[in-house]
Nucleic acid binder design. Structure first.
Length: 567
RNA sequence: GCGCCCGUAGCUCAAUGGAUAGAGCUACCGGUUUCUACCCGGUCGGUUGGGGGUUCGAGUCCCUCCGGGCGCACCA
């Protein structure tokens, strides 16, 4: 770890990050086990938390209660023994037992302050880790039909999916973001027929697409391809369908880039069939022995692995089902080298979870390790309490573009990421366009801009804090300690968000950190006033500001939200 | 009928089995001759839908009931 290196090679005060502290508790446990002959299962990571009540110290752990039974000691006795060892460590001011066996740890000021230097030198890598190192993960999301604009549900996944991918990468995984283009089947034909009908001045078929964007597509295609009108009807449907497909897909791609959600792979369902991946996938399933024939159709026995019913791969009429594409697509992802395929689906597709897991198992994989399905609940938009349902472009849905037009990319992304995906969400447009503290995205961005302003002013005063001495013990106030504590949590938060696939934890963390900074700012003067000399306290606070700026910037980066230097 | 998700303050929502369940908004009270007041402090607000259980400890895990959303194709 960086801090350790500093402590040894430069003679700076030993720094204590939560990760180091966790290691120290582990070390104390094995010391105890050895010296007292205890048989305890020492966990790989000792859970440390920041107590809500600061009277309980800087950090607390419940490890003694968790291990007491296996150690054959009472929780308090085990805790006492651990505290005796921990109190000897450099950087720890005190360790004490509380309540049923909590261990409360207080760091000494200098050890805590070292963190500012650690963060500044880690720079944009601060918070990144190796929890998922070596894993190759495919994250598939949105995967809409190219038959219209992306709607609100897609938009939620665009924001969350992208953030999940960024967070997984920060935790050390190799990640590809993938969009599966549903460009095959009757929806495409209905789409083509709808555009053609409008181009010909006829009414859109009952089962067709009715949004205003169909009119725009028809007009664009008619202008570009006047020769389509000369084709016979069957050829014309196909010509309109293909031209509209191309335009609509391009529109989705452009809007997503604008939304800062970049896909590494756009995978066409058609290409799956054209490449022979479907029969290849089928072959794989046959080899595993879960394919059977019944009533003239070919089935996959997904009920072997927890699905409600078996699924048809090839219909009695000889056509592949959509499900056949799904299975082939899964096999193809694995063949492309992904250890894990993560699917992000809307709540209306939760019935697919068991099916997809069963597909993995039928292909001979581990359905717990190789496939993962996350379900996102629906989003509702209100304006002053009234639900908004109408889109400017698409009729009775709200599109990604509509939302971005209303609130901007930063507020849209942040507001969608801020809540866990599995809870239904209602966003009020009036709230997320306000530039006040009831709108957390601006609250966090403002904290960043505020830090930047202080650092700019320091530069104007020719205070070169970077090359001056840094005295970590000068960060001694309650607010400085609280801010350092918050900054130290960041790597943990990133790792947890990655492990749980919950980027909202990053957003919530940033809000807490912003609050800690604002409190610090209100109580601790950073820069010298007037003719005051520059003290080590000023310099230390500048280091703390720089560390705060870096942490907030790194966090916002994981959410795909800008960190403005001025507001 | 079967299955999945949800139910936490008036509203929108947090809380990885831990200590007194937290934020923001709303209402009210206060703070800046000083680095960005888009900020900070305070007051009011709860039987975590109900009832059982598991254990040192449950908003969190299990069972059950109530309420809401969604899904149960040889459609895509």
């Amino acid at each position: 770890m960086h801090e350790g290196k500093y402590a040894l090679s430069t003679g700076y005060a030993a720094g204590v990050t939560p990760e180091e502290l966790s290691e120290q508790v582990r070390g104390a446990l094995s010391d105890l086990a050895r010296s007292q002959g205890l048989t305890v299962d020492i966990p790989e990571v000792v859970h440390l938390e920041r107590p809500r009540n600061r009277d309980h110290g800087d950090y607390a752990t419940n490890i003694a209660m968790a291990l007491a039974k296996s150690a054959g000691l009472s929780p308090r006795d085990l805790a006492e023994a651990l505290c005796a060892v921990l109190s000897q460590w450099p950087g720890i001011e005190s360790a004490s037992v509380a309540g049923p066996g909590f261990i409360n740890i207080r760091l000494d000021t200098a050890a805590q302050g070292e963190l500012a230097r650690t963060i500044v030198s880690a720079g944009e890598h601060y918070g990144h880790g190796t929890l998922l190192a070596g894993q190759v993960i495919n994250v598939e999301f949105i995967s809409a039909n190219p038959t219209g604009p992306l709607h609100l549900g897609h938009t939620r996944w665009a924001a969350i999916g992208d953030a999940i991918a960024r967070v997984l990468a920060a935790a050390g995984a190799t990640v590809a973001k993938e969009f599966y283009i549903n460009d095959r089947g009757v929806q495409m034909d209905r789409f083509g027929a709808s555009v053609m009908a409008v181009a010909q001045g006829k009414p859109v078929p009952e089962d067709g697409y009715h949004g205003g964007y169909i009119t725009d597509l028809a007009a664009a295609i008619s202008a570009q391809h006047p020769e389509f009108a000369l084709l016979d009807d069957a050829e014309q449907v196909s010509a309109y369908r293909e031209a509209a497909y191309e335009l609509q897909l391009a529109q989705q791609q452009q809007v997503l880039e604008l939304f800062r959600t970049h896909f590494d792979v756009w995978y066409s369902e058609r290409s799956l069939h054209e490449s022979g991946a479907v029969p290849a996938g089928l072959q794989r399933l046959r080899e595993q022995g879960h394919v059977f024939e019944l009533d003239g159709a070919l089935w996959l026995r997904t009920t072997d692995f927890g699905d409600d019913k078996d699924r048809v791969l090839i219909k009695a009429d000889g056509e592949y089902t959509y499900f056949a594409s799904d299975t082939a697509y899964y096999v193809d992802k694995r063949n492309r080298g992904f250890d894990r395929a993560i699917y992000l689906l809307g709540a209306d597709h939760h019935g697919y979870v068991n099916r997809l897991r069963a597909v993995a198992a039928c292909a001979g994989d581990d359905m717990d390790a190789n496939v993962e399905v996350l379900i996102g609940q629906l989003v509702k938009i209100t304006r002053a309490g009234e639900e908004v349902k109408l889109s400017k472009r698409a009729g009775n849905i709200v599109t990604l573009e509509d939302l971005v037009d209303e609130v901007g990319v930063d507020a849209a992304r942040y507001s969608l990421i801020r809540y866990p995906a599995d809870s239904p969400l209602t966003l009020d447009l009036e709230v997320i366009t306000q530039h006040t503290s009831d709108n957390p995205v601006f609250y966090v961005q403002y904290a960043h801009a505020r830090v930047c302003s202080v650092l700019r002013n320091a530069q104007d005063l020719h205070i070169d804090w970077r090359s001056a001495d840094f005295e970590p013990a000068a960060l001694s106030t309650e607010q400085e300690s609280a801010l350092l504590g918050a900054l130290g949590q960041f790597p943990r938060i990133v790792a947890g968000a990655a492990e749980l696939r919950e980027p909202h934890r990053i957003a919530r963390y940033l809000e807490r950190t912003a609050t800690a900074y604002h409190r610090f700012y209100d109580n601790c003067r950073v820069l010298p006033r007037g003719d005051e000399p520059v003290t080590e306290e000023h310099l230390a606070r500048l280091w703390l500001c720089a560390a705060t700026r870096q942490t907030i910037a790194n966090g916002l980066q994981l959410l795909g939200v800008h960190a403005p230097e001025r507001m």
